Simulated assay, not measured.
Amino acid sequence: MKQMHYGTALVTGASSGLGRGLALWLARRGTRVFAAARRQEHLDALAQEARAAGATLEPVKMDVAQADATVERIRQLDADCGGLDLVVANAGVGGATPGKQFPWEFTKQMIDINVTGAVATLGAVLPQMVERGRGHLVGISSLAAFRGLPTRAAYSASKIFLSSFMESLRVDLRGSGVRVTCIYPGWVKSEITAKNTFPMPFLMETEEAVERMGNAILRGEPVYAFPWQMTRFMKLLHALPNPLFDALMSRRR
């Protein structure tokens, strides 16, 4: 499959983890990358690393939880650069939201970032992309979207929402010239997973995960899930009858 090239790209959640890696990966391939996140000092360090590699990466301080401000900022970037070719909604948070001690404040924060923030990011310049007849929207979901996991009600639900949102967009935008990709990573080393105290099967190095994601985006894959071992396992869980799934997950919890 022929790989695409992008003149401009926006990547959110670029101060660490997959977002940081993907922003640098794209910049090193000649894309002018707008790297967006809340932590300015992390973005400045990323821009310096990109410059050392002869790449163009511009820091953009942005909090996607502030949805209206996010839409306004992205529209301004789109106008200033002559049109964004690629928008990657990567910013997200994870963590436990157990039903018996349901933490409302954390749940709201997760929804504001993972759901509302992602939609604001992807939808900000979608009409402009359709008008131009080109563009690529990428949403970073999770294998946790394949089934509601114990103690992860808010996280699984937020990723299920994003997956369904991307699927509907993919159907709606067929023939418009605007591509849609949904990516489902498994366990990847990051600031988020470093806090986990439970086993993480097939935990992947960030660099390998970024390479896989970047190539899937350039190929224009509509859906890409990895690693294959965890993907197969989650698909099996998805196919289980509810009583069997509930019993299995209760023991896992």
Rank of each mutant, 00 (worst) to 15 (best):
V130L: 13
P227W: 06
V119F: 06
M4R: 15
I217A: 05
R20Q: 15
L18V: 15
F165C: 10
I140Y: 02
M129A: 12
A9K: 01
N242C: 01
V87Q: 02
G19P: 04
V171H: 12
L10D: 02
V178D: 08
S16G: 00
A50P: 11
W25Y: 10
Q48T: 14
Y184C: 03
G117F: 02
D246S: 14
D172K: 14
T107R: 05
A14C: 10
I74D: 05
E221P: 07
I74W: 07
Q66V: 01
Q48E: 14
R75P: 06
I217Q: 08
Q48K: 14
R28M: 12
G95P: 01
A65Y: 00
L26P: 09
M1S: 13
P227H: 03
Q109A: 13
M62P: 02
K108V: 07
V93F: 02
E72P: 10
M4K: 11
P241D: 09
K189D: 02
T181N: 08
T97D: 06
R174C: 13
V178W: 07
A47E: 13
Q109I: 02
P243W: 02
F165G: 08
H238D: 09
K100R: 13
D78K: 11
V188S: 08
E208C: 07
A209E: 11
Y155C: 02
M200R: 00
L218Y: 09
Y6I: 09
G54P: 04
F198Q: 00
K189S: 02
L162F: 03
A50Q: 12
H42P: 01
A194P: 00
A52T: 09
V130E: 15
Y6Q: 07
G13Y: 01
K61G: 06
R212S: 12
K100L: 12
Y6A: 05
L26Q: 09
